[in-house]
Design a protein around this nucleic acid. Sequence first.
DNA 1: CACGAGGATGAATAATTATCCGATTTCGCC
DNA 2: GGCGAAATCGGATAATTATTCATCCTCGTG
Lengths: 156, 156
Amino acid sequence: MSAVERRRRAILELVASRRLETQEQLVAALVERGLGASQASVSRDIAALRLVKLDGRWAAPALAPPTTDPNEERIAGRLLAVAAAGDHLLVLSTPPGEAQGVALALDRLALSGVVGTVAGDDTIFVAVVDGAAAAALAGRLGALIRGSATPSPERA
Amino acid sequence: MSAVERRRRAILELVASRRLETQEQLVAALVERGLGASQASVSRDIAALRLVKLDGRWAAPALAPPTTDPNEERIAGRLLAVAAAGDHLLVLSTPPGEAQGVALALDRLALSGVVGTVAGDDTIFVAVVDGAAAAALAGRLGALIRGSATPSPERA
DNA sequence: CACGAGGATGAATAATTATCCGATTTCGCC
DNA sequence: GGCGAAATCGGATAATTATTCATCCTCGTG
């Protein structure tokens, strides 16, 4: 096992088991274990391991699968517009006759914050838990419409 | 809706829909929308929203529920030791007769990277997908043994 | 309206992290 | 072993983010 790999595994272990707030602390913890490294290397390791600083500490990734979800593609191809209507409701538009299918795909995505959907012929109502969820979902669906790459999926 | 809240929702939307690499970019994007703010405020908003910088961009949180899982508590109370045995196997020790129960609780946690478990009387074998998963899980279980607060759960 | 408490804000700055660059090491191959 | 390519490394530094601090709003109250 290469030194890099040994160090990275140690980092995963450390990060999973104690509160490490800075890369310098991580460097110190590695030194304790006899694995020396500079902050520069740790920074690179963190990028490679895709660790994340959450609540002021380094944490293991909470990964959603990066796969391209077919449901998502279906939505991307058929969604025309997104509008917020208050804190708990989003209104989506599709081509005529497509709403049911898109709503189904949306349900299958099981996105966090989505309470439920109702679909008509070319319109979908999406009930969401709160305004923050509405904003996040609106942003995400907007990106789908524009075809931008979707960020880390944030599943339920 | 307070100005803070409006800004934070806009941030959620923006972050979900485009690639924003720095807080300054976020500030600029907010200005586009007529919502002014300093980098300082955005930094505070990001903390409040628990956003995360992943792959060089700000991203919406991939949240695992922060609840205390009873399965986790059960493990915490009965796990005695953790040892790695190669890249694909972790060996756990429990008090006599407890292994089955702990293994069951472990299965129920549905941790990412865990392929399966086999339990005897006071020993559990945990098969994991790779060395990185082994390291991460070892760190996490170690923290459970020591009773430290568990970081962001990283579920499957 | 005057007042005060508590929250929000921005400018400045401290703290932290990412990157550049030259040096060094590792690895595959002969 | 000797060689070159590629990976890794650390020091220095640039870039980014968090915090401090003084000030400014926003309300509720008298």
